[in-house]
Design a protein around this nucleic acid. Structure first.
Length: 489
RNA sequence: CGGGGCGUAGCGCAGCCCGGUAGCGCACCUGGUUUGGGACCAGGGGGUCCCAGGUUCGAAUCCUGGUGCCCCGACCA
């Protein structure tokens, strides 16, 4: 068997890169730091979009679209936000090219086409959106505004990795405006919960819900809520964030409304987003050395039928009947009729792409009315009577979905530790890695010292962690709650 | 931006030290035999050897300068 992917144990990063490229999720592009999302990867994203979009609509949100460019003067209005993103902004300074007078086959930037005011390519859209909301909001009757947009953003990162961190990426960003602090906080928490449900129920990826520390908070936010997942190398990955923005943006953009008490007040805001990074998370959460393992609820193809050894009239007929039965149950099924490749090749190919279930139909089994059904997650193969498939397959898809979640959760739990002293903390972080719950004195100084010394950061202050007396592992100062530490992507 | 490594066919690489006009595996095309876990045989197509300059009768190979990419760190979703 030709090996196409570096084994995880040999080199985890290389495994990830190999997987992304070999499985057809993405391709490298001619633009540094940017990738091409190939049809298989984009299909995954479309499935994520469809589900999230429905969840947003079900919670009362509507979609809209705001410009890619943000005038610099607007961008700088909310100081903390501007400062936080300043170092990674792409800036448009000119609007025209012209033929190079010294070389007619080349183009140069026309120095006469310099913009009066530079345009920032959005790294996030709070600025342009809040500048717009000012015009939309006059009265408490105009609130709340519950808008989401599907968009691309650009953040000029120094180092990129496919899906996990690229210069341009796709995401959704929700931006809501509210008349009261409570309502805005509830909104931020509600979307935090939506992300949790999406990660756990659809991606089969267990997450820890929590709040970010001041250091890790979104620039311009009062509070940032996060979901943190564990990857197979024990590192944490921030999979989604929801921010309570207080009145910071309302004040920066002068967005006021008249309350039902006839008082002028600043609007309360939230924003929340998940990106194509989720695809990277999905890959690193479940996949193995043979390729992707996709949760059935998101897999572009849930069931693939492979004729063995090749298509024939009899096999085609069984396959087509089966496809109709499965399709009528909204199962995404594909019949691999390609005559160029043999079954073994196809098996490997579909495993590489992460198809949850493979059905092998061969003349020999068919004589007994059987087909071979193989699960991608466990590699288990069983014989199933043809007439049982239309009931068995949906059940098996559900089993796979659940198994993936359970497996990921067990893995995470095994790599989760509770420690009470610096030495044990360092032993785990520097050794096997994983999540570490430990007491922390609550100061940024200590957080930074720990980061500097161990490269572990506070991923979040878990929302559901019990109060308990303890001492900061670094300074010995009293603490009432454990926080979650890990090295992170 | 620091520290490493690499640019030779679509992909992965050898050749470079010691200059002589480019090769291997996979992929691709044609024909045939095959077909229950990445088939085999035969034939075939495909290269500005990253770019520019220099040394030389002659440069993938030596020298100089660019440039691009990858990995590790700092920054970050």
């Amino acid at each position: 068997m030709a090996k196409v992917i570096t084994p995880r144990q040999e080199d985890y990063s290389q495994w990830y890169n190999d997987l992304v490229y070999r499985s057809g999720l993405a391709d490298q592009s001619a633009v540094r730091g940017c990738m091409v999302i190939k049809p298989h990867g984009y299909a995954l994203w479309e499935n994520m979009q469809a589900i999230l979009d429905k969840m947003f609509k079900d919670t009362g949100h509507v979609n809209a679209y705001f410009p890619l460019f943000v005038p610099k003067s607007l961008f700088e209005a909310e100081e903390k936000n501007a400062e936080g993103f300043a170092k990674e902004c792409a800036v448009v300074t000119h609007y025209r090219l012209k033929t190079d007078p010294n070389n007619k086959s080349k183009l140069i930037v026309d120095p006469e086409a310099k913009l009066e005011e530079e345009l920032i390519v959005r790294p996030t859209s709070e600025a342009i959106i809040w500048n717009t909301y000012r015009d939309w909001i006059k009265s408490y009757r105009d609130l709340p505004i519950l808008i989401n947009q599907w968009a691309n953003v650009v953040r000029w990162e120094m180092r990129t990795r496919p899906f996990l961190r690229t210069t341009e990426f796709l995401w959704q960003e929700g931006h809501t405006a509210h008349s009261t602090e409570n309502e805005a906080i509830e909104e931020a928490l509600k979307m935090h919960e939506v992300y949790t449900r999406f990660a756990e129920d659809y991606m089969a990826m267990p997450v820890i819900k929590g709040a970010k520390t001041a250091n890790e908070r979104f620039a311009g936010a009062v509070d940032t809520f996060t979901i943190e997942a564990m990857m197979q190398d024990g590192k944490a990955l921030q999979a989604g964030t929801s921010h309570y923005l207080g009145q910071n943006f309302a004040k920066a953009f002068n967005v006021k409304f008249l309350s039902d008490q006839n008082r002028e007040e600043f609007v309360y805001a939230t924003s929340w987003g998940v990106s194509t990074r989720l695809i990277g998370a999905l890959v690193m959460c479940h996949s193995d050395d043979d390729g992707l393992i996709l949760p059935p609820r998101l897999a572009p193809i849930q069931v693939v039928i492979v004729p063995i050894p090749k298509p024939s009239e009899q096999i085609d007929q069984v396959a087509k009947t089966l496809m109709d039965q499965l399709k009528s149950q909204n199962i995404r099924v594909n019949y691999d009729q390609d005559e160029k490749n043999r079954p073994g090749f196809k098996f490997a190919e579909h495993e590489l792409k992460g198809v949850p279930i493979r059905i092998g139909i061969g003349a020999r089994d068919l004589e007994q009315g059987l087909v071979e059904v193989a699960r991608r997650d466990t590699k288990e193969k069983i014989q199933i009577p043809v007439d049982k498939l239309s009931t068995e397959i949906p059940l098996m898809l559900e089993k796979i979905q659940i198994n993936l979640f359970d497996r990921a959760k067990n893995f995470r739990d095994q790599k989760t530790h509770f420690v009470d002293d610096r030495k044990s903390f360092e032993e785990i972080i520097n050794g096997p890695g994983g999540f570490v719950y430990a007491h922390w004195d609550g100061s940024s100084e200590t957080e930074n010292a720990i980061k500097e010394s161990t490269k572990a950061t506070i991923r979040c202050i878990p929302l559901d962690a019990p109060e308990e007396d303890g001492q900061c592992i670094w300074t010995g100062v009293k603490s009432k709650k454990r926080v979650l530490f890990a090295r992170a992507y």
